[in-house]
Design a protein around this nucleic acid. Structure first.
Lengths: 246, 246
DNA sequence: ACAAAAGTGTTCGATATACACCCATGA
DNA sequence: TCATGGGTGTATATCGAACACTTTTGT
């Protein structure tokens, strides 16, 4: 087996978003530069799950591989949303130091392809090798490495756009969810409040949000009915509509 | 002035779409491989307006430069929509021959960033150096170089999605347009028919489609009132809406 | 006068919005 | 019994869809 070659100028960065019934979170990994001789910690910050792609690997596979390498997570639905190629995106002093010392020889001109993925941020088991991956609230994900603040911002903008125009995001909820959880998710992402009755009326028209014969258990209040999303029904009943507005 | 270096693995491809009151068109440029010694034409096909980017140029500037180089068109509103990195995207025999003979030494692993732009396809003056650029109906733009069939397809899919959800695409119309032209545009892109009265009722609620005190002249029928799009009013009155559907 | 496209209104069913109270459970 | 979040209905205004005829111009 011959050694695979990494591409010097092309990377993939994944914005893995989770929801915990309260807020949006994102997976970030530590980037700590320790000088090998003195063991001095030069700096420590956070990056998205990203890395360079191999020459013999397409973009989607690269995204999946990199996420798996850094977090242990597999089979995430990763979707490309935008690419980033600003000239100065690796020009922060930390980035330059990292490039010098990280072991691989990369260009300082790297175009990165942005991917995102959605999942419930509860009950996620990270299996990490070396660098530490964890959830961080997106609101506090500032001062990231490279241009990753901007990448996160763009991902959320993209997501918000889609949320306004199609009923998506069920991936962010547990498989079985309550209507209140669903409403909170929409409110968190769109930054709005919805009337409970009207929201539920809207949802009750969505055949693909199917009520289960189950209720919450162990909650200190009236247990809510559980629902699940049916992808099948969704694909079958989805219609396009001339829905833009004055 | 030192020579600028092209990046081996990164290109930009622009899907420049135009509308001529009847159909969608796309700008394509000839790619003709002529052997220098025998003058034999090995093959001739068509590509999008695309090329490799320079090391010292960001993606947006590269797109603008490349379009200008190939067509002479400047100040087009170019927007990034997707990136393409399939392993076999340059593996058609013509592409391989082209790579061998085109003069520059490029990798056969190139990731390309897709951009699109919209403009009326009437009254466009191409200023071309060498390769020939022209409008082609998108319906007949098949068998293009590289993966450009796919790139065009993705661009149109992207555009159609946006058309369904926001009132855009005025760039595809002349500055002064009639409501019939606007309706035909929507019908062409969305592949639907709209009722004339309902369409006009909808449009009359859009404050940013402003009636002018002018009519068509020289037409062999009742001349239509002209309208224009006001970007200002649009930005001021635009609202987000929970508009997804059952 | 005729051909060709412009322009216009009403009815009906569906949807969006606003709004307030009772219910089931665990502690 | 109380605290907590779950669950429900109605009235009004607006919007979307369906539908056919008259007007203005150039030839």
């Amino acid at each position: 087996m011959t050694a695979r070659k990494l591409m010097q100028n092309i990377s993939v960065d994944c914005v893995i978003l989770g929801f915990d019934s309260e807020q949006l979170n994102v997976i970030l990994v530590d980037r700590t530069l320790i000088l090998p001789n003195t063991s001095e910690v030069v700096f420590s910050d956070l990056t998205l799950t990203g890395y360079h792609i191999y020459e013999d690997e397409d973009l989607d596979s690269a995204a999946a591989r990199i996420v798996k390498d850094l977090t242990g997570l597999e089979n995430l639905p990763l979707k490309q949303f935008y690419s980033f190629g600003a000239l100065d995106r690796l020009h922060h002093p930390n980035d330059q130091l990292w490039l010098e010392h990280c072991g691989d020889v990369f260009s300082d001109r790297v175009v990165t392809i942005g991917y995102y993925s959605l999942l419930p941020s509860t009950n996620v088991n990270f299996i990490q090798k070396g660098r530490n991956a964890a959830w961080y609230p997106v609101t506090s994900a500032k001062g990231l490495a490279y241009d990753h603040d901007f990448v996160v911002e763009k991902a959320i903008e993209h997501l918000r756009y889609k949320f306004w125009h199609e009923p998506i995001g069920f991936e962010l909820l547990p498989v079985k969810f309550t209507l209140s959880q669903m409403q909170k998710l929409y409110e968190a992402i769109l930054g709005t409040q919805f009337d409970k009755r009207n929201f539920r009326k809207k949802v009750s028209q969505m055949d693909y949000v199917v009520p289960l014969k189950e209720k919450q258990i162990g909650v200190a209040h009236k247990p809510a009915q559980l629902f699940m999303f049916s992808c099948d029904v969704y694909e079958k009943t989805r219609k396009e509509r001339f829905d833009f507005f004055v």
